[in-house]
């Protein structure tokens, strides 16, 4: 599935303009969105996930404008992983992950007249891909931040859509869990051909995983390209208003960028 943005712009209360965003996302590609707070990253994600309507321009998937799709079809094509989710109700991990199957239920299945084919297999696959099979009977409320984050990804995987949207998915995770989580996503992009769009604040981390970066500033994309091209100290200094240094790590040869 190809996602295409053409001048997608959202205007808040006729004043604050976020966009226009233009670009094309290929299957299996991983787009990282970076930029300071208030740059419009979350607005872009919310437009992509179909919850916020562009004031001008269009976002389409294989030629279909995503705002003209029914909520159901849209959820079959795009899965959004929220940053964090809290609920005061006690549901088990399996019951939460099952929500990902909601869009695939027929009327007979909703009346529990028949069971969905492969229902348990889909849930199991989502649980094992995110490494939470052991937690499946646990109460979602009592999980740690890292475990919850994996459950949220598991919902999106159970949804079985080709496009995954994530807003700072590792903001509650320690470095070990962050890497494991991003490795998991990388596998989904490279092996299953899922298109991933992710907002992230860790520039070094994101440059290791993403194919393309969009650097946002004041509601516009000021630079798009490969991580090497976008993570230019002079450009970052302009956007983040602090000085950066960049160097190549002698052991790994990786390009590293740090605030000075």
């Amino acid at each position: 599935m190809i996602v295409k943005l053409v001048d997608a712009t959202h205007v808040y209360e006729e004043q604050l303009e976020i966009g226009p965003f233009t670009g094309e996302l290929q299957p299996g590609s991983w787009l990282g969105i970076i930029g300071p707070n208030g740059a419009g990253k979350t607005t872009l994600l919310r437009m992509l996930s179909g919850i916020l309507r562009p004031t001008y321009g269009t976002i389409s998937i294989d030629g279909h404008n995503i705002y003209q799709l029914s909520t159901k079809i849209r959820a079959q094509w795009i899965a959004t992983v929220p940053q964090i989710l809290d609920t005061s109700f006690n549901l088990t991990v399996t019951e939460v992950v099952e929500l990902g199957r909601l869009v695939h239920l027929s009327l007979a299945e909703r009346f529990a007249i028949k069971h969905q084919d492969g229902h348990h297999q889909h849930i199991h696959d989502a649980l094992s891909a995110t490494d939470i099979v052991d937690l499946k009977e646990r109460s979602f409320n009592l999980l740690s931040g890292g475990e919850k984050q994996r459950v949220l990804l598991a919902i999106a995987l159970a949804q079985n859509s080709n496009i995954l949207i994530l807003d700072e998915p590792t903001s509650h995770l320690d470095p070990g869990h962050s890497f494991r989580f991003l490795d998991m996503l990388n596998k989904l992009a490279k092996e299953d051909g899922k298109t991933i769009v992710m907002v992230h604040h860790d520039l070094n981390l994101i440059s290791r995983y993403c194919d393309t970066l969009w650097l946002c500033h004041k509601g516009k994309v000021v630079k798009q390209g490969t991580p090497e091209a976008v993570l230019d100290p002079a450009l970052l200094e302009e956007v983040y208003e602090i000085r950066f240094i960049s160097f190549s790590d002698r052991l790994t040869g990786r390009h590293i960028i740090l605030p000075e």
């Binding site: 996930s49 179909g50 919850i51 029914s70 909520t71 159901k72 849209r74 959820a75 079959q76 899965a79 959004t80 929220p82 989710l85 609920t87 109700f89 549901l91 019951e95 939460v96 099952e98 929500l99 990902g100 909601l102 869009v103 239920l105 009327l107 909703r110 009346f111 529990a112 919902i155 949804q159």
Partner: peptide
């Protein structure tokens, strides 16, 4: 009865319900 999955989704908030395909 056919809205039981939607009721479960609402427990996680309207935004998440929207993401999993509920016409909120």
């Amino acid at each position: 009865i056919p809205f039981i999955p939607e009721l479960n989704a609402f427990l996680l908030g309207e935004e998440e319900a929207h993401y999993v395909g509920v016409s909120v």
